[in-house]
Design a protein around this nucleic acid. Sequence first.
DNA 1: CCAACAAGTTTAGGAACTAAACTATGCTCA
DNA 2: TGAGCATAGTTTAGTTCCTAAACTTGTTGG
Lengths: 153, 153
Amino acid sequence: MLMDTNNSLPTNSINKGSHSLGRLFLQLRRLERQPQTFGKAGSLTPSEIHTIEAIGCEGGILMNELATSLGVTKGAVSQLVVRLEAKQLVKRSSYPHDSRAVLISLTDKGKEAYKAHEEVHVQFYDQLRAQLSQQEIEIFEKCIDKLNEFLRK
Amino acid sequence: MLMDTNNSLPTNSINKGSHSLGRLFLQLRRLERQPQTFGKAGSLTPSEIHTIEAIGCEGGILMNELATSLGVTKGAVSQLVVRLEAKQLVKRSSYPHDSRAVLISLTDKGKEAYKAHEEVHVQFYDQLRAQLSQQEIEIFEKCIDKLNEFLRK
DNA sequence: CCAACAAGTTTAGGAACTAAACTATGCTCA
DNA sequence: TGAGCATAGTTTAGTTCCTAAACTTGTTGG
């Protein structure tokens, strides 16, 4: 009865890209689950390395900012920071203007992990670039940006 | 002392794409966490809808196949299937050639969820396509495929 | 001064796994 | 044939990564 409620269009070609994108999501989902080792920092879970990435090498960041930047609750960040502090990748310091607030920043060891992770990203991307022409890269980046903008909504 | 150990290259342009890609990962990570409602099937968690997607509308699939297709252990699939069965989206039946095996297939309600989800995907992709030229789409899809291939390793 | 608010922390609980033990069936070959 | 091993699924205990909600402290505007 309801076989192919999909209507009219040459669905094949449309679905092809949608399907590739679906597979990409699945791959990333899988990838984003396994811990990795970065520099001397030892094995870090995906959340941990993302947190380090979000803190950044320069200056400190408030818990609140970190939470919105990562798109999680402040409770989640609080827990993450406890773990990272225990691993000595991150340190807390007080925020001059408001004694409730806590400034989070990377320790030297944390910065090392940051750099190592960034290095992995860049190398990965370099490998991808190596298989594409200059023009393709530009278009690809444009599309990724559009996609990002799109997902933000 | 160790400011910019990154060497020589015009790092900006390289990092730009790598950074966009990083943000995409984060966005997807966030997106892949919240449940959504599909058709009359009620609210489904990301894992649930992915499982339904992997089972597919035609015929049945074995637990084992499902596990490899989703990239998780059979234990994980087993648990998922219990939940989906309780929600009456999926049914088990016996596999003629091997009485140990279990064939999983979608119920009518499950198929509805499948279609609704597929519709969301296609619409999403259509919206993206609408902002790109034909040539850009082709290149984008090519890049996505390359990326997929790349992540599989 | 103090009520309302804001920054973080804590706690309980759920989702989504994994690894490993377990059950039950199927296969092989001496 | 049947002992031993492999294979299909299930179960269980434990982990990670969250969230929501209650709490603790500190800030601020009437």
